[in-house]
């Protein structure tokens, strides 16, 4: 057992700099640490010393001796010392517990179980597959899917520029509100759902973007609505017309 010796010092100036009651200045002396209880507490909290090397029995003994020998001691100081002592004991108890062995991730476990895998010489096979792929591209089959590049479907915007569309969108953004705080969050509509909604509320007569996009949408939702409009323009479902200084969006009529 460690050498037990402690010197009790009591001062009247026990209020710490931060207004917190400082623990009583118990001087602790152990084979591995010599200093005040407050200093030990500080060193442990800052991980400057390993508490497993410091026996806490003499520290506790010193504390109880203090309580017994000085019955008129400041109760708040004593309580602060008890809190510091409780912290040290708890930390030491945790540090003495065996560390749980981390369970290997299923993936790592699987990798470890694989051992040495046979290594195949795939170079030739890859070259053959690439050659077959090139040859296959020279044969065309009937297909239900459109083979033309979906992103090259022609659509007519006449003299309307991207800047014109951007200005129309800026008006919507200026009107929309910041994203409301929603602790639980609300599932956002998918782009496809917004496109469907948009088509359903698109009036027969071309109208402004401000009329199409709901007034109460947030800025983020406004961006989503705008993307849906652009997508519908690309797909030829919405046409854009210029009316003096503003753009009108309407259902596209097929020729």
């Amino acid at each position: 057992m460690a050498k037990r010796s402690a010197v009790l010092e009591v001062t009247q100036e026990s209020l710490g700099g931060l207004g917190v009651i400082a623990p009583i200045p118990i001087h602790v002396q152990t084979p591995t640490f010599s200093g005040s209880l407050a200093a030990l507490f500080h060193c442990v909290r800052e991980r400057k010393i390993d508490l497993r090397d410091v026996p806490l029995f003499p520290v506790c003994q010193t504390y109880f001796e203090y309580l017994l020998t000085l019955p008129n001691a400041n109760l708040e100081e004593a309580a602060a010392a008890l809190a510091a002592l409780a912290y040290l004991i708890e930390r030491k108890a945790w540090s003495l517990l065996p560390l749980p062995v981390p369970e290997p991730e299923p993936y790592e476990e699987e990798l470890a179980a694989l051992g040495d895998l046979p290594s195949y010489d795939l170079e030739e096979a890859i070259e053959t597959l690439q050659r077959w792929e090139r040859e296959r591209e020279r044969s065309f089959f009937r297909t239900a899917e459109p083979t033309v590049n979906a992103y090259e479907v022609p659509y007519e915007l006449d003299a309307i520029t991207l800047a014109d569309i951007a200005r129309a969108f800026e008006q919507v953004l200026a009107r929309s509100k910041p994203e409301p705080l929603q602790p639980l969050g609300r599932p956002r509509l998918s782009l496809a759902e917004v496109m469907k909604l948009l088509l359903s509320r698109l009036p027969i007569e071309p109208t402004t973007l401000l009329d199409i996009v709901p007034e109460d949408v947030s800025k983020a939702d406004a961006v989503f609505w705008f993307l849906a409009i652009l997508e519908l323009v690309r797909l030829g479902q919405i046409s854009i017309l210029r009316d003096e200084d503003q753009l009108l969006f309407g259902r596209a009529t097929r020729a």
Binding site: D116, P118, S119, Y120, D121, L122, E124, A125, T128
Partner: peptide
């Protein structure tokens, strides 16, 4: 129909 592949020596 895939071409056969060889197992590489260690």
């Amino acid at each position: 129909e895939l071409p056969p592949v060889e197992i590489k020596a260690k």
